[in-house]
Design a protein around this nucleic acid. Structure first.
Lengths: 201, 201
DNA sequence: ATAAACATACCGTACGGTCGGTTTTATTGC
DNA sequence: GCAATAAAACCGACCGTACGGTATGTTTAT
């Protein structure tokens, strides 16, 4: 059910996530759906929480293979966001993330996530310069949703490189013309996530 | 009518901008309102266009008093956004801007505006470094809507200074403004929970 | 008199949510 | 093993309502 809800949100926007639609997509009736979630809002929040957990996983994975301590989280954050950005509208984050900002409940979930995450990485990602980088990543992500055609790939790559470079310690800043060294893997396009422990039909 | 619609959107979110509400706020009936606008979407778009025009004015005003050509538009953009950001939820942009991203029509209006504006300032604001600054401004604006408590004023000022500095030509960069005087003003006055925007009326 | 600016009443609908009943699944007692 | 039982998952019909939109008057300025 959560997966179907996420799919609908990703494909048709969060406004299209109606109890009917989700129930039908999950081959259940509205009654059955509402048996598991007390209402629509809890459903949405569950979807969003699920998404946050996946983002956590991705970021942790990226951080694990990053030798440089300084800015490790910010780099992973940037990479993760650029991956989502590159996926464009197909990414679950496209439609959900944007509507998240319009909803008070989801907004709280997001800011809590961010706060917790930053707190966890004080010491490596506390520098002011890094927060600018993270904000820029957010802005780029936003812009890519905004522009109907999206930013073109070259521009995206360039911005990605710029931001990545800004996450390195000061003395490491360099303008190499040999950019594409990021750890973005475009594997598992299907991402069948069944880490949901529930046994729903 | 446009003003009332904008007010409602700013105060209670764009979801609260219903034909009824706007009509009542403007001391008209729904029929009277729909006499001037063929539907809801055109109304919203009119409000948004109005907002864009005001933003244009503000930016033009800021650019007029900027002696330095390089990055002039980006500086004005940043300043304008930080002014809006500082106003927090009271700013019309708070609720409207965010919902703009969720709506295809408004998204188009915005990207058109941005494209036109950038095209107009090719030559002064074409540098890659400047686009990063603009994206960061967007991200900060977004974050300030996101965080329930908002970023605190000191943090905001610091980010503003950082971005402004980044809009200046390379040889003008200086790094001594914030000499690592402890990152302690990172603390948030814990959750001023006023994030529920609903009011009964 | 003519058209614009309204008002009033109404319609269709889609949505969130409720409720009572039915089926499936798990647990228990023997 | 197996029936009895409890609990959960699930169905289907229904309700209230709020919203966008329409269609037809009624007032007001020109």
């Amino acid at each position: 059910m959560l997966d179907q809800a996420a799919r609908i949100a990703a494909e048709q926007g969060l406004a299209a996530v109606t109890l009917q639609a989700v129930a039908q997509a999950a081959s259940v009736t509205k009654g059955g759906l509402l048996h598991h979630f007390p209402g629509k809002q809890p459903l949405i929040e569950a979807v969003f929480t699920d998404l946050l957990a996946r983002l956590d996983e991705e970021i942790d994975g990226l951080m694990a293979i990053d030798a440089q301590p300084y800015g490790r989280f910010t780099r992973a954050y940037v990479d993760a966001f650029f991956r989502e950005t590159r996926d464009g509208e197909k990414s679950p984050w496209a439609a959900i993330g944007i509507s998240c900002m319009a909803d008070a409940g989801l907004r709280l979930l997001w800011s809590d996530w961010m706060r917790a995450r930053l707190e966890r990485h004080v010491g490596t990602d506390d520098a002011p310069a890094l927060s600018v980088v993270r904000y820029a990543a957010d802005g780029i992500w936003l812009a890519n949703l905004t522009e109907t055609a999206g930013l073109d790939a070259d521009e995206l790559d360039r911005l990605h490189d710029d931001l990545k470079r800004m996450t390195r310690p000061m003395d490491d800043h360099r303008h190499d013309d040999h950019p594409h060294q990021d750890n973005l893997h475009h594997d598992n396009p299907h991402d069948n996530n069944q880490h949901d422990t529930r046994t729903l039909r």
